[in-house]
Amino acid sequence: MSAAAPAIGMPSAWRRVSTALYLRPGLVLFLLLTPPMLWLGIVYLGSLFALLAQSFFYIDGFTGQVVREVTLATYAELFTAANIGIIWRTAGMAASVTIACAIIAFPIAYYMARYATMRTKALFYLAVMLPLWSSYLVRVYAWKLILAKEGIITWLAEHLGFAWLLDGLLSIDVIGGPSLSASYIGTFLVFVYIWIPYMILPIEAALERVPRSLVEASADLGAKPRATFRKVILPLAIPGVAAGSIFTFSLTLGDYIIPGIIGNSRPFIGMAVLQHQGTAGNIPMAAAFAVVPIVIMGIYLTVAKRLGAFDAL
């Protein structure tokens, strides 16, 4: 025993650590989860709580100092007509962008999931992800040039004889404007372009999980392709659409760069937050504005769940 001990005994420190960890899976879990939980708990939830707390303070109009007293005065101010306008504008844009993204993304995702060969699917993945490799700002400014009055779209419209269509679009109240880059239509187009990968990928993943045999079973039971799509494929893809819409909706709600560069410079929520905490130094108001997207997302998810968007998960 004592003679054999050095051979199998005398484990190196690493081996002892490995053995100790192997025998205590709970400890491994604890060690693995503590850093991210601390990060999530302190940095994320902590700052969120700090933000919420800020929104219940108010700013003294004379001194410009934040008064640390709990009050609903800031929220009362949030619900003035101008601010409500900002909230509606942002929510309306987020909803339209989400719907447009879903409509455009679905056929692409459907093709990728059901028809594309491995090779074409890889190409599609690349095409969908490629824009994400270049800077967001570069892409937004590129769009500003494309949409500008002197840009390629106007030029094409004039040369191909559909200038009347462009002018017609731009003359529509509210969403129109002097040029695409200075109208809500432009803001909308760029939002859809920027966020569409976040809609395509989850829908594709959901559709890919629908086994071919389900589609065959539906046909076997007498359903024509249209009915199969409505009764089987679409319901099973809805969780993917819901996941994608969470991305496009919340990203649009919080963005301040795109409406700042492209559009008619009427403020969105993100721009209001930036302005209140940066320029005006009104941290409580900025915090109150920042709470709005959280509440809207909460309502959105509740409604989506009620409608059964996650039932097929």
Binding site: S213, L214, E216, A217, A219, D220, G222, V232, D311
Partner: peptide, 18 residues
């Protein structure tokens, strides 16, 4: 298939999960 008077019991059952 949807115009044939035959029905199939699939190997993986292919029940609609939703």
């Amino acid at each position: 298939p949807y115009e044939r008077d035959v029905n199939t019991v699939f190997q993986d059952y292919a029940l609609f999960p939703h």
